[in-house]
Design a protein around this nucleic acid. Structure first.
Lengths: 357, 357
DNA sequence: CTGAAAGCGCTTACAG
DNA sequence: CTGAAAGCGCTTACAG
């Protein structure tokens, strides 16, 4: 049962004006202005050669007609579509929707639009690849810790510039990430300095550079202090995986005094599982995450973590992409940007003034 | 410090083959096959008039060249772009990313691609509207409880078919939603039948049909049983809003025996705030949500809720959209689909067999 | 400062 | 069963 239409249409009048009219084109405008379509085209893009008078009259008409240039026609001749393909991986991890929300306006700021190629952690289908090619996308952005090799190959093969975000690139490609190694190492040091000696690790997906680097960062801190890992469990980068990992750690009687989760969403699962087992955070066990997703600051979690420098990562990603759209011969580049420690209540940390830079 | 390139490029050979070659076109293929471009075009789209022999040789060449038709050129003549604009509202509510993940493959299944028009609950900027027009999008999908009037007007004005999901439409437009009224009413009845009499409400954004309908559904159940609301707080459809609302309810000494949150994300905030105040769920207070996002089944929340029939909603949304792309003169339509009760641990509910249909 | 012409890569009547 | 021609809406040398 539909619950009925609401409100009346305030804009009926305004809508009526243009309804049913064919959309205007350079031709429509050129006829009304009494000039050639070349002149219209030039005036519209601010070519300095067009006289102020002609330009103004063309602009006025265009505005009046609600003219929008046909991007398809334009890109046919300019060989630039203004479209970038977007792959978003593990969207169940709030890090990605949060990234998407901030990425989109920054793309727009650089006159780029995003076409969705793939969403979610499932395998890329051939349709994604086809549309990348069919729509003549100028470039491709991969936001995912796991997906990439297939689409990376396609981009290489067809010379579509591509940048990965939240990954480290293999040869040829570009990628931008947080300095995961440094962030994890700092977290590890501060845990140890605060007296933790039985540190358990919950890893993300193996074979992702993000997880690997964070694990290595922690290991570096541990071996610097001659401490060895109490346990290591695979948490698959999901809440459920973190929850299960913590349950296992508890059941096996490992009694860690700290659990280092490779990302926030797993850390949340860890905390919930620990509490369920009657343990207090951080009195009995310290828990740390990584990413600083919004939920990390929910009072229930109050998670100590490293904030990824998302805005800076986005800007650098777009720099790299645009440079390569300009000049596809540029070599691949990996950029890693320092994150920022967020001290919260889920972990007892050394109070030492710590900088990640 | 970038941590270095990894792996070697397994596909160097394959990549080398096509690198640097111009992409092939109908013209490339027609020359190699010794036929006209018309014939190539027809063969490629399976026109029955082309002889099997010609067709096969053309198809073979196309495959060999990795041919992908230029969608820009095609849409210039067909007046169909195969692109729909996508507006995603409150992406901080996991309901939307989860919807997006399921929507995207279903769009692909109908040969449609999604271009992002807007992400997040901020106001739509003019750029979104411009790109809708410039890229000749065939239609537009609005997934948002709040955004819409501006883009709705534009779509009406330029005759771009549009369907809203998770909303009820005003005149002219189409919308698909869960039967929010019936779902909320059922939840209310089961709470009352289980003995709750001091029921507090945490609303979403006012002026959204989703929130209004759920509130009305609850009210209907209450007035049927001569129960009146103990309190009503605005929760802004966010976790933080739900948290604050529950804190206020506790501080004002309202002592509800149940809190009905208009959606899951607010219910999660409510639960965390209640526990913080030392209350047990559901022994002291029952809490219900709506949507059945993934986090609702996390053990920490174990939230009793109504699952939105997301897959059915998506299919109907696409039906409506495609019908109107075919025939824009079709009248607007509101569809509401029954949700499904999820009995979990956060609320004491009457055991009565309840159906939402 | 402006215009005529060609062309981007397709599709589609119209002929044959 | 196949091809020549026109055209979708732009932009851009090339002329003037």
């Amino acid at each position: 049962m539909a619950r009925g239409m609401r409100k009346t249409d305030d804009n009926a009048d305004e809508n009526a004006r243009n309804v049913g009219r064919r959309r205007s084109t350079v031709r429509t405008i050129s006829e009304r202005a009494g000039v050639s379509t070349s002149t219209v085209s030039r005036a519209l893009k601010g070519d300095r050669r067009i006289s102020a008078k002609t330009r103004d009259s063309i602009l006025a008409i265009a505005r009046e007609e609600g003219y929008a240039p046909n991007a398809m026609a334009r890109s046919l001749v300019t060989h630039r579509s203004g479209v970038v393909g977007l792959v978003i991986g593990e969207i169940g991890n709030p890090f990605y929707p949060e990234l998407l929300e901030r990425l989109h306006p920054r793309l727009a700021a650089r006159s780029l639009r995003a076409m969705l190629l793939h969403v979610g952690s499932g395998p890329l289908d051939e349709g994604a690849v086809q549309s990348l090619l069919q729509y003549q996308m100028d470039g491709c952005l991969i936001a995912s810790a796991t997906l990439s090799s297939r689409i990376e190959d396609i981009c290489l093969q067809y010379r579509v510039p591509m940048v990965m975000i939240n990954r480290v690139a293999r040869v040829h490609s570009c990628a931008v990430s947080c300095d995961n190694f440094a962030g994890a190492r700092l977290l590890g040091e501060l845990l140890i300095e605060a007296g933790h000696r039985r540190i358990a690790l919950v890893t993300g997906q193996s074979n992702t550079s993000v997880s690997e680097d964070r694990v290595e960062g922690l290991q570096a801190a541990l071996s610097d202090h001659g401490v060895s890992l109490t346990a290591s469990c695979e948490g698959h980068s999901t809440y459920a995986g973190g929850f299960a990992a913590a349950q296992e750690i508890v059941e096996r009687g490992l009694r860690p005094d700290a659990i280092f989760a490779v990302n926030d969403i797993m850390a949340m699962g860890v905390i919930d599982a620990l509490r369920r087992a009657g343990l207090r955070i951080p009195e009995d066990v310290s828990v740390t995450g990584f990413d600083d997703i919004q939920a990390a600051s929910w009072p229930n979690y109050d998670l100590t973590t490293v904030a990824q420098p998302v805005d800076a990562m986005i800007e650098r990603t777009l720099d790299l992409l645009l440079e390569r759209i300009e000049d596809p011969s540029r070599p691949g580049e990996n950029v890693s940007i320092h994150g920022e420690l967020r001290r919260r209540g889920s972990a007892r940390l050394s109070g030492r003034t710590a900088s990640l830079s």
